[in-house]
Simulated assay, not measured.
Amino acid sequence: MSEFHNLAELALNREGQSWGNLGYWKTAIDYSDACRALALLLGEQAGLDRQSVIFDAGFGCGDQLLLWLEHFRVAQVHGANLSRSQTAHAREKLTEAGFPGAATTIVEGDINDPDIWSATLGTNHPSHILALDCAYHFPDRAAFFATAQQHLVPAGRLALTDFMLSDHPQMGPLAHRLLRWMLKRAHIAEANIVRQDRYRRQLREAGFGEIHILDISEQVMPAFAAYIQALRHKQPAERGRTKLGWTALVKYTVTSRFLKWAYDRSILRYYVISGTRTRRG
């Protein structure tokens, strides 16, 4: 059975890169650079430093793991990822980069499975839990918030990038049906797509305070759509050098058009969110 989360994004990257997020396109014009910029922004908002012990909830193909280790010089990185193929790719990247198991422990599994956390962390507690462009895919994001709170050290930080409904979406019955159809197609639980006030409430109820929410929609949603549109209009021979097959091209075309539609109609917005653990579980 084929995986929904696979290695398709490799075709969008430069040689040697395997990023898989929507990117932060404030200055970037290349997919790999935009994806790295989004990870950098998340790490900065999280306040990563040399003492940080990270749990990465959905680390993709491993490029962000190397960024935490090499750019922020964090002490340890742990993580879980649902995809078998991506996890294998990430392990290869870490091995090739020379990072031993003592510094990194990553496993394949569902982030909502408590056993996955214990298998990765043991009795350790991370100072930071990160979710880069993936939390909207979790089966139950509110449950993820609660689990993250239980495992963080006191005053530990949760940081993620995520979609929310805008406060005033331009959405009639037809637009609502299209949104529901796209969420199902993209393996996103409809319950995960909420307005900012409810999102804040879910974080507070899970035990987080000092909540900061930064709107970066303009630098993500229409910019990713424009990049994919430009890629589609390249000559076939040039596009072939990206190794982007027809199936993947259709997938990204549909995704990019949906994101532009959702942005233009003020239906969805994209944010960097961070919060501090304020109480014990």
Results as ranks from 00 to 15, higher is better:
residue 10 L to C: 07
residue 12 L to E: 03
residue 16 G to F: 08
residue 17 Q to R: 14
residue 20 G to M: 12
residue 26 K to W: 03
residue 27 T to K: 10
residue 29 I to W: 01
residue 30 D to T: 15
residue 35 C to E: 02
residue 35 C to K: 03
residue 38 L to N: 06
residue 40 L to H: 11
residue 42 L to P: 07
residue 43 G to E: 05
residue 49 D to N: 13
residue 49 D to G: 06
residue 49 D to P: 02
residue 56 D to W: 05
residue 59 F to V: 04
residue 63 D to A: 07
residue 63 D to I: 00
residue 71 H to A: 15
residue 77 V to H: 05
residue 80 A to N: 10
residue 80 A to S: 15
residue 81 N to H: 09
residue 83 S to K: 09
residue 84 R to A: 10
residue 85 S to T: 13
residue 87 T to M: 05
residue 89 H to D: 00
residue 90 A to K: 08
residue 92 E to V: 08
residue 98 G to E: 09
residue 102 A to W: 12
residue 105 T to K: 13
residue 106 I to E: 06
residue 106 I to S: 14
residue 108 E to D: 05
residue 111 I to T: 05
residue 113 D to S: 10
residue 115 D to M: 10
residue 120 T to F: 06
residue 120 T to V: 14
residue 122 G to C: 10
residue 122 G to F: 09
residue 128 H to D: 03
residue 129 I to D: 00
residue 132 L to D: 15
residue 133 D to C: 12
residue 136 Y to M: 11
residue 138 F to E: 03
residue 140 D to L: 08
residue 141 R to V: 03
residue 142 A to F: 05
residue 143 A to S: 14
residue 152 L to G: 02
residue 163 F to R: 06
residue 165 L to K: 04
residue 171 M to V: 13
residue 173 P to I: 07
residue 184 K to T: 04
residue 185 R to A: 07
residue 188 I to T: 07
residue 188 I to N: 10
residue 190 E to P: 01
residue 192 N to Y: 09
residue 201 R to G: 02
residue 208 F to K: 01
residue 213 I to C: 08
residue 214 L to Q: 14
residue 216 I to V: 08
residue 223 A to C: 02
residue 226 A to S: 08
residue 229 Q to K: 14
residue 232 R to L: 11
residue 233 H to N: 15
residue 241 R to P: 01
residue 241 R to C: 04
residue 258 F to M: 03
residue 261 W to A: 14
residue 261 W to F: 13
residue 270 Y to A: 04
residue 272 V to I: 13
residue 273 I to C: 08
residue 277 R to K: 11
residue 278 T to W: 10
residue 278 T to A: 09
residue 280 R to C: 13
